[in-house]
Design a protein around this nucleic acid. Structure first.
Lengths: 111, 111
DNA sequence: CAAATATACATAAGATTCTTATACATAACT
DNA sequence: AGTTATGTATAAGAATCTTATGTATATTTG
């Protein structure tokens, strides 16, 4: 499925929320989780995911921990303390964003 | 105010929805309307707005009509037939997007 | 058993969208 | 007279994403 342009800019928030919820996750796991939660509607591509994870790590928001499972490499990511704090802000921004978009789309509901 | 990254990709949808609702609008009017609806939270910059309007026009989704008011130029935009049809799709995508983001952020509410 | 699919990470080229800065012009306010 | 508001426009650069490609192992399927 082709993702709409709307998801642009929301990937970091999605990653951080999932890590906040699940403690630690690896890249492929994140793609599968998102696919499951959105019932196949949102497919995160590797070309978007891995650079995003590396950047969040470089910014000190994520820590990485490498494991070998079934002879295959896994890089588990988890939120740092800074990342946990930042996640609160991002989720707050997301709530504002959703509220604002709903106001724009559904002006009748404003009161 | 600084806009969050989340709005990336939503500008076209916002423009089209406002035009669907108000018939015709000019650029500056759109920025003011959005600012009012979002209570100052979302400020569309000219550098984003005008290229977006020009592109939607080039795609045949908008028609333009130039007027001179108080000795100043205004370019009124309105949806073409194609644009009206496309707006329905975009709003549907936006609803899916919001629903998916809420599922991701608020997994407890899934049932 | 060979081929396809799933699992797992990674990067590079190019497209798209946006921010920031700048530009021009008139009207209104202070 | 200078700032703010109204009104449109573009160019340089940043940020994010898509698409394509690459490597490697495990599992499923015909």
């Amino acid at each position: 499925m082709k993702n709409s342009q709307l998801y642009k800019g929301s990937l970091n928030t999605i990653i951080m929320k999932l890590l906040e919820e699940n403690g630690k996750m690896y890249g492929y796991e994140i793609t599968q989780k998102v696919k499951a939660i959105t019932q196949g509607e949102l497919n995160i591509t590797e070309g978007a995911l891995y650079p995003a994870l590396h950047k969040l790590e470089a910014e000190g928001l994520l820590d990485v921990e490498i494991e070998k499972v079934d002879n295959r490499m896994r890089k588990y990511y988890k939120l740092t303390e800074k990342g946990t704090t930042e996640t609160v802000n991002r989720l707050s921004e997301l709530e504002d964003f959703i509220r604002n978009m709903q106001s724009l789309v559904n002006p009748k509901l404003e009161f």
